[in-house]
Amino acid sequence: MKARIEKKLSKRLVELLPSVYRKAWRDQDPTELAYDQGSSVRHVLSVGGGVDYWGEGQDAYTVWEDWQMNWCWHGPFEAYPNGHRFQGYPNIEGFRPTTINLLKLAAQCERTSKEWP
Protein backbone atom coordinates (compact mmCIF):
# COMPACT_ATOMS: atom_id res chain seq x y z
CA MET A 1 0.00 0.00 0.00
CA LYS A 2 1.21 3.47 -0.77
CA ALA A 3 1.67 5.98 2.03
CA ARG A 4 -0.77 8.46 0.48
CA ILE A 5 -3.48 5.78 0.48
CA GLU A 6 -2.76 5.07 4.15
CA LYS A 7 -3.21 8.79 4.85
CA LYS A 8 -6.58 8.87 3.08
CA LEU A 9 -7.77 5.70 4.83
CA SER A 10 -6.75 7.12 8.21
CA LYS A 11 -8.72 10.29 7.52
CA ARG A 12 -11.76 8.28 6.38
CA LEU A 13 -11.68 6.13 9.52
CA VAL A 14 -11.68 9.20 11.76
CA GLU A 15 -14.76 10.40 9.88
CA LEU A 16 -16.45 6.98 10.18
CA LEU A 17 -15.52 6.31 13.81
CA PRO A 18 -15.33 9.64 15.64
CA SER A 19 -16.15 8.00 18.97
CA VAL A 20 -13.18 5.63 18.71
CA TYR A 21 -10.63 8.03 17.20
CA ARG A 22 -11.57 11.32 18.89
CA LYS A 23 -8.00 11.65 20.22
CA ALA A 24 -6.34 11.25 16.81
CA TRP A 25 -3.63 13.78 16.08
CA ARG A 26 -1.64 14.80 13.00
CA ASP A 27 1.88 13.43 13.00
CA GLN A 28 4.37 15.99 11.68
CA ASP A 29 6.88 13.30 10.69
CA PRO A 30 6.58 10.84 7.81
CA THR A 31 5.06 7.50 8.73
CA GLU A 32 7.09 4.33 8.78
CA LEU A 33 5.47 3.31 5.50
CA ALA A 34 6.33 6.65 3.89
CA TYR A 35 9.90 6.39 5.12
CA ASP A 36 10.25 2.88 3.70
CA GLN A 37 8.89 4.04 0.34
CA GLY A 38 11.05 7.15 0.24
CA SER A 39 7.94 9.30 0.21
CA SER A 40 7.40 12.67 1.87
CA VAL A 41 3.82 12.01 3.02
CA ARG A 42 3.31 13.79 6.35
CA HIS A 43 0.49 14.93 8.63
CA VAL A 44 -1.15 11.50 8.78
CA LEU A 45 -3.77 11.09 11.51
CA SER A 46 -2.25 8.95 14.27
CA VAL A 47 -3.07 7.61 17.73
CA GLY A 48 -0.95 6.66 20.72
CA GLY A 49 2.49 7.99 21.42
CA GLY A 50 3.40 10.09 24.40
CA VAL A 51 4.94 8.74 27.57
CA ASP A 52 3.62 6.30 30.13
CA TYR A 53 3.64 6.55 33.93
CA TRP A 54 7.37 5.76 34.13
CA GLY A 55 8.34 8.29 31.47
CA GLU A 56 9.02 5.71 28.77
CA GLY A 57 7.92 6.45 25.23
CA GLN A 58 4.96 4.59 23.78
CA ASP A 59 4.45 3.57 20.17
CA ALA A 60 2.34 5.73 17.88
CA TYR A 61 0.38 4.22 15.01
CA THR A 62 -1.52 5.67 12.10
CA VAL A 63 -5.27 5.34 12.51
CA TRP A 64 -5.31 2.80 9.67
CA GLU A 65 -2.61 0.66 11.34
CA ASP A 66 -4.50 0.79 14.62
CA TRP A 67 -7.77 -0.26 12.97
CA GLN A 68 -6.03 -3.15 11.19
CA MET A 69 -4.74 -4.41 14.55
CA ASN A 70 -7.97 -3.94 16.55
CA TRP A 71 -10.99 -4.26 14.23
CA CYS A 72 -12.05 -7.64 15.60
CA TRP A 73 -12.72 -6.14 19.05
CA HIS A 74 -15.11 -3.52 17.68
CA GLY A 75 -17.21 -5.65 15.36
CA PRO A 76 -20.48 -7.46 16.04
CA PHE A 77 -18.71 -10.78 16.41
CA GLU A 78 -19.89 -13.38 18.92
CA ALA A 79 -17.29 -14.73 21.32
CA TYR A 80 -16.09 -18.30 21.05
CA PRO A 81 -17.98 -20.54 23.51
CA ASN A 82 -16.60 -21.81 26.81
CA GLY A 83 -14.32 -24.79 26.34
CA HIS A 84 -13.13 -23.66 22.91
CA ARG A 85 -9.40 -23.09 22.61
CA PHE A 86 -10.05 -19.41 21.76
CA GLN A 87 -12.66 -18.99 24.50
CA GLY A 88 -13.64 -15.35 25.01
CA TYR A 89 -12.05 -14.08 21.77
CA PRO A 90 -14.27 -12.82 18.94
CA ASN A 91 -15.23 -15.44 16.37
CA ILE A 92 -14.14 -13.82 13.10
CA GLU A 93 -14.38 -16.92 10.93
CA GLY A 94 -15.78 -16.07 7.53
CA PHE A 95 -14.83 -12.39 7.67
CA ARG A 96 -12.18 -11.35 5.15
CA PRO A 97 -10.30 -8.26 6.40
CA THR A 98 -9.95 -6.53 3.03
CA THR A 99 -9.78 -2.76 2.89
CA ILE A 100 -13.38 -2.36 1.74
CA ASN A 101 -14.67 -4.83 4.34
CA LEU A 102 -12.79 -3.03 7.13
CA LEU A 103 -14.26 0.32 6.07
CA LYS A 104 -17.78 -1.17 5.94
CA LEU A 105 -17.24 -2.67 9.39
CA ALA A 106 -16.15 0.72 10.74
CA ALA A 107 -19.31 2.37 9.38
CA GLN A 108 -21.43 -0.42 10.85
CA CYS A 109 -19.73 -0.13 14.26
CA GLU A 110 -20.42 3.59 14.50
CA ARG A 111 -24.08 3.13 13.54
CA THR A 112 -24.60 0.46 16.20
CA SER A 113 -22.86 2.54 18.88
CA LYS A 114 -25.27 5.43 18.18
CA GLU A 115 -28.23 3.09 18.66
CA TRP A 116 -27.21 2.28 22.23
CA PRO A 117 -29.15 4.25 24.86
Results as ranks from 00 to 15, higher is better:
K8P: 02
F77V: 07
E32A: 07
T99G: 04
E65C: 10
V41I: 14
S10Y: 02
K7E: 05
L103R: 01
R22S: 15
H84T: 11
Q87V: 07
D59T: 14
P97H: 04
E56I: 11
E93Q: 06
D59A: 10
R42S: 08
Y35N: 09
D29S: 12
V20L: 15
K104P: 04
G55Q: 04
W71G: 03
C72P: 00
S113E: 08
Y61A: 10
I5A: 05
V41H: 05
T62G: 02
E15Y: 08
L17Q: 04
E65H: 00
W25A: 01
L16R: 00
V63C: 05
A24P: 00
E93W: 10
H74G: 10
W64K: 00
Q37E: 15
I5W: 05
V63I: 03
L45C: 05
G57C: 05
Y80K: 01
L16D: 05
Y21G: 01
A24F: 04
E65L: 06
G83F: 12
G50A: 08
N101C: 00
G88A: 04
G50L: 08
L33E: 09
E78D: 13
V20Y: 09
L9S: 00
C109Q: 12
A107Y: 03
T62D: 03
Q87W: 15
W73K: 14
H84Q: 05
K2P: 09
T112K: 11
A106I: 10
S19V: 02
D59K: 13
G38L: 00
L105I: 06
M1H: 14
S10D: 04
E56S: 08
L105Q: 03
G55L: 06
A3E: 07
Q37F: 04
N82F: 12
V51D: 06
Q108R: 09
L13N: 06
Q28T: 12
A24L: 01
E6N: 14
R22A: 15
V14D: 02
E93T: 12
S46N: 08
H43C: 05
T62E: 06
P81R: 15
F77C: 01
D29P: 02
L33G: 02
I5K: 13
Y53V: 10
R96A: 12
Y35C: 00
A107D: 11
A107G: 15
G83D: 11
A107K: 12
S19D: 13
R85Q: 12
S46C: 15
W73R: 14
N70K: 08
W71V: 09
A107S: 13
H74D: 11
R85K: 10
Y35S: 11
V20N: 03
K104S: 10
L103S: 06
L105R: 06
G88D: 00
C109S: 10
L102Q: 07
L103E: 11
A3I: 03
K8M: 06
N82K: 15
T98V: 08
D52V: 05
A106V: 01
W71P: 10
Q87R: 14
G75R: 01
D36V: 03
E6M: 01
I92C: 15
